[in-house]
Amino acid sequence: MADLRTKTARAKLATGKAHAQKLGTGRALVYRRQTEGRSGSWMLRTAKPTGGYAHETLGTADDTSPANGGDCLSYEQALSKAVGQLDADPSKITVADALDDWAEWKCRTATTAKRCTDLRNQARRIGKAFPTTALKTLTARDVTAWMNSIVEAGTNPQARRATANRELAVLKAALTRYADLHNYQGARAWVSVQKFTKADSFGKRMVILTEAEEARLIDAARQDVADLLKALQLTGARCGEIAGAVVSDLEGNRLALTGKTGRRVIVLSPDKAEWFRLKAGNRHPDAPLIPRQDGQAWPDGGHMKPVRTAVKAAGLPEDVTSYALRHGFISRALSRGVPTVAVAQHVGSSVDMIEATYAKFTAAQLAEWFA
């Protein structure tokens, strides 16, 4: 067994490898050494009943910085924290605890602050349905009733079933992870709950407009909203990616976008590049590329109300959102024979998602493309 007690002892261990100190049956304090000059990390490793291990990061080791008992831990502090985790009474674990822990765990690898906020909000939203429910008292009937309540809360059953399915996936992941970490041996009622069938994964957002309808929508919008919609139409990007782009992200015919899948660079045709160049003008490199009418960046969700106004003015169905421009871009690219992998790379998605979402097209789109 590796000696983890001192910095000197840990410095002799192999880099990039997990070195464990057994704490009990199926549980261990793990130290992973980094390259010279970088601090290693402490983790709690717990064996899963179904095989394999669950790992929980405890903090950074005090290899290069003084221990503070918080995010930088000495051996004694890491051991105490690990034992404290193990001593948690499994019978008192609540659904809300598991969801909060899941959100914080996911936040460690979130690419943006917004993504982290979304994860925490989602955990709190689900947790409100089970504010004091313990894992040992949770029943499949409770979970099913909660899913039904999500469907009943909206006017589009197919879309709401998709929402319920996404929330169920998060609930299952959070409860299973927390139960594994704390060696919970009780019944896992959530495992048997099945997702809804016939659920549209995009719900209301899965609307594809004809090019004429897109033009009508853009023409009906006020100028700053029209610019935002036009940018979405030209790139197939997500609204947040365009809203977050700054002038310096545009270099020639390349535009850098940052979104939930990270940062990517897309290639623009000469006409599209010229349109963006005119919008950028001679403004400061850090200025928003497609700003609001006051020159500031679009806040999260700030486009939604003016887009609804434009949708109404254009005489389009009320379930049309800015996402319809992304759907239109992707569906037309596929209809032109652009390889799915190229489309997925351009719009920051996966081949599986593209194929699953756009496998079927409406009669209106087919008529527009092939008639």
Rank of each mutant, 00 (worst) to 15 (best):
D319M: 06
T144Y: 06
D200Q: 06
Q233K: 12
M43Q: 15
L175S: 05
L257A: 03
R45M: 12
L168W: 04
V351I: 11
R108P: 03
C107D: 13
V311E: 02
A226Q: 05
E167L: 13
A280E: 09
Q223A: 14
S269A: 12
S322D: 13
D227N: 13
L44G: 05
A287I: 04
D224P: 03
G24Y: 01
Q85R: 14
E251A: 15
A169N: 11
V207W: 07
Y31C: 09
V341C: 02
S91V: 08
A134F: 10
T112D: 00
R283S: 08
A243V: 07
N165L: 06
W369T: 10
D87F: 07
Q158F: 05
A88C: 12
D89K: 11
G70R: 11
S201K: 15
L209K: 15
T132R: 12
A314M: 02
A28V: 07
L99C: 10
D87R: 13
K312L: 11
L135R: 11
A82L: 02
P157V: 09
G244H: 03
T133G: 02
R222P: 04
R120F: 00
A310H: 03
A280M: 09
V338S: 08
Q296N: 13
A103V: 03
L209V: 14
A273E: 08
K195C: 13
Q194N: 15
Y31M: 11
A82K: 00
T60H: 12
K92L: 12
G315W: 09
M1C: 10
R45S: 08
T132E: 10
V151M: 01
V83H: 08
A20S: 15
W298P: 00
T357Q: 02
A314Y: 00
K81I: 04
Y358S: 08
L232Y: 01
M206P: 03
A231M: 04
A310R: 00
A88W: 09
L209M: 14
A189C: 07
T309V: 14
L175A: 05
E211M: 09
P90T: 06
C239N: 11
T50M: 09
V343G: 00
E355I: 10
K17V: 15
P299I: 05
H284M: 06
L73P: 10
D319V: 02
D249F: 02
Q34L: 09
L135C: 10
T132Q: 09
L58T: 08
Q223C: 10
A359T: 03
A226Y: 03
V343T: 02
N148E: 07
S350C: 08
A313V: 07
D224M: 05
A169H: 04
T25H: 13
E318N: 13
K230M: 14
W42V: 04
A314G: 01
G315I: 11
A314T: 01
A231V: 03
R222M: 09
D118F: 00
E36S: 14
G236W: 01
R32T: 15
S149D: 14
V247A: 07
V95M: 03
Q293F: 09
A2K: 08
T197W: 01
P49W: 00
G236F: 01
T137Q: 06
R254Y: 01
A297Q: 09
L119F: 09
Q223K: 14
T261S: 12
